[in-house]
Every structure is written in structure tokens, then in C-alpha cells.
Simulated scan of single mutants.
Amino acid sequence: MKKSIPIVASGILLLFGAVFALHGWREEQLAQARKENAHPLVTVSAAKAAWATITPQSTAVGQIRAQQGAALSLQTAGVIRSLQFHSGETVQQGQVLLRLDPGSLPGALREAQAQAKLATINAQRAARVYAIHGISTAELDRAKYGAEVANAKVQSLQEALGNTVLRAPFSGVLGLRQVEVGEYLPAGKTAVRLESPQNLQVDFAVPQNLAPFIQPGEKLRLQSRQGEKGQQFVAQVIAVDNHVDRANRALTVRAQIRRSGFLRPGMFVLVNLPTTSPQRRLTIPQVAVAYHSYGDFVYLLKRQGQDWIAEATPVQLGAVEGQKVVVRKGLQAGDQVVTAGQVKLHNGDQVRINNAVSLH
């Protein structure tokens, strides 16, 4: 009996040893799994939030318009016989776009031309006879005015026939076609819209108290979103309306856009208007901001021991000044924010800062 006790004790010790070994192996496997699932170290570039002197601005909503633009239609109603253009096509001034069925107009014109030719010959003959006192002055006048009436009728029919043809009044780009062959086209109905995209303008209204700051020649900045990314454009004021709207006490301003890019007539843009003297504001590079419908944020870099950690931080933004944007709330001067490499980041990731390379 006494001999069996050491054997049992040894078995128990071996059992406990196996349990501890299994536990250690499982912990090692879990640690390895956590290491494999952890986000790798991300290389980013960064910049500090810093004070800058900017000119405070208010904003207005402007609408893009073409310097030349028109909804093309005909003064004459009729059935469309042929269409000689496609949607989105670039056309030249005078190019034929559409023809209506002229009906009896060509025949009436030929008849009128023949009558005008005869009336002209009769007037010339009457003048020769009158020169030898063969007819009275009244008869000569009837012959002359008869020729004028006949030629006027020819001109009228030529104009009526010309009104059955739609031509491009200027060179530009056509919009979407609104009609089809065989369709009855009422007088004045738009067949297609023509715009000249080379010279775009923007119209916007400003309160009367800002009138002293908006004068012809003043340079303005426009903002428009292209997807989630904002883009800026430069415009120059070319005219200010001479009448204040009684309904809202505002002046309408027109500015010429330089390098219009993806802008199209009818689009809305945000117009930045200078309002007061320059002021000191906290700014960050605009590329650091992630714009989202639920709120704008930046990746703020914070020290955690010897490491840098990226933390998604909501911010409230102000005016855009060049490549920088004003931060109203969310950051302090000296805070470092990620300016490139955000696409690879998750909240809480460990990062390495390298401003010597361009990151995408």
C-alpha cells in the first residue's frame, strides 16, 4: 500500500504538468493569433495645426451659366422631316440641325418668283413706253408698284421657308435632343439646348452691406464638390447689378470663371466673399480632412509611450484659404494631423511619420 502512494503522486504531478503545458501552448497560440490579426504599422505624412493670417469671408450660393446659351426652337409649327444632329454633339455656327416639312411653300415660292419676274419685265417695258409718252404716269406707277409687291411676296415666302429650318446661332455643344422625326413641333417648343462651354460665368446675390467689398475686377474663390473631394476655382467680378432687389435687399453679381474644369451650366457653387480685414485663425492642410455626410474628421496623432497612435477626431471647419482650411473646433495649435496615408488607417492604428516621401 505504501509503495503505491509514490506512484499515485507521480501520476498526479505528471497530470498537472501536462495541464500547465497545454495552457501555456494555448496562450502562446492566442498571442500569435492576436499578433497576426493586429493592424500593421502604417507609414503616414503629417502636419501641425498652426495659426495663419487669413481674410474672413462670407459665402453665397452661385449658379453657373454659359456666356452664350440658348434653348433652340422655331417660330413656325410643323412636322419634323429630318434631324441632323445628335445629343451632346459639338456644332458650328450656321449648321443645320432640324428641318420641318415645308408643305406647299416651295411651290408657292416658285409661283411667286415667276410672277415677280413677269412684273419686273412689265415695269421695265412700261418705263420705256412712258419715255416716248405712250402711257400715263398712273399706268407707269401701277407697273412699278406691281413689281415691288410681287418681289415682296417672294421675300415673304423665302423667309417662311427659312423658318422651317433650325440652324445653330453660334458654335457650342448641344444638350439632349427633345424631339424626334415625324413629331409635330409647336412653334416655340424647345428642340435642344445649345451652350458654349468655353466661357462660363457665375451669378450670385450679395447683401447690400457687402456691396463695397464686391467691385468689378475683384477676384473670388468658388468651391464645388466632385464626389467627396472639394475643388476650388477662381473667378473675377465683371459686373454688379445697378438695382437692389426690393424683396431681399440684395445685389446680383456676375463673375467670369477661369479654367472651369468639370463645371457645367446650371450647377451650383459656393462663392467665398471677402468681408473684413485679415484675422488670425487656426488652420490645417485641407488634404488632412475626411469629408463625410455624418461629419468631417481628421486623424490626430497622439503619443503612447514611444509610439504614435492615429485617433479619428471630429472637427468643425471654417473658410478655405488656398490649400488650408480654418479649424473652428476640435484641434489646438501644434496638434499633428495625418495629411497622407489616411486610406490605410483605422482608428487606434500605430503609425510611423515620414514626410520625406509622397504617399497615396
Score class of each variant (00 low, 15 high):
A340I: 09
G305T: 05
Q306R: 10
G318N: 05
L300Y: 01
Q304R: 10
F297C: 01
K344L: 15
K329W: 10
L300Q: 10
E311T: 13
V326A: 07
P314N: 08
L317F: 10
N347I: 00
Q332P: 00
G318Y: 09
L300H: 10
Y299A: 03
Q336E: 15
F297D: 01
Q336M: 15
L300A: 00
V315Y: 09
N347Q: 00
Y299E: 02
L331Q: 07
G318Q: 04
T339D: 03
I309G: 01
K324Q: 15
A310K: 03
P314C: 11
A319T: 14
Q304Y: 01
L301K: 07
D335R: 07
Q304L: 06
Q304P: 00
G305H: 04
R303D: 08
P314T: 08
A319D: 13
A310D: 02
E311A: 00
V327M: 11
V315N: 04
V337T: 10
I309T: 07
S293W: 11
T339C: 11
V320P: 02
L345C: 07
V338E: 05
V337N: 08
V320Q: 08
Q306V: 01
Q306D: 14
A340G: 13
Q306H: 08
E311I: 14
G348D: 03
V298W: 08
G341Q: 08
Q306Y: 03
N347C: 07
D307E: 12
G334N: 06
G295K: 08
K329A: 14
Q323V: 15
V343G: 12
R328T: 09
D296T: 05
Q336W: 15
T339S: 08
E311F: 06
V338Y: 09
L317C: 06
R303E: 11
A340P: 03
Q336T: 14
Y294S: 11
L345H: 11
G341C: 00
Q336D: 11
N347M: 06
H346D: 05
G318L: 02
L301H: 06
A310M: 04
Q304H: 13
Q342C: 05
E321Y: 13
T313P: 02
Q304S: 11
G341T: 09
S293V: 13
G341W: 09
A333K: 15
G348K: 02
K324Y: 07
D349M: 03
A333M: 13
G348Y: 00
G330Y: 10
V338D: 04
V325K: 12
V315C: 05
W308N: 11
H346F: 13
G295A: 06
A319G: 14
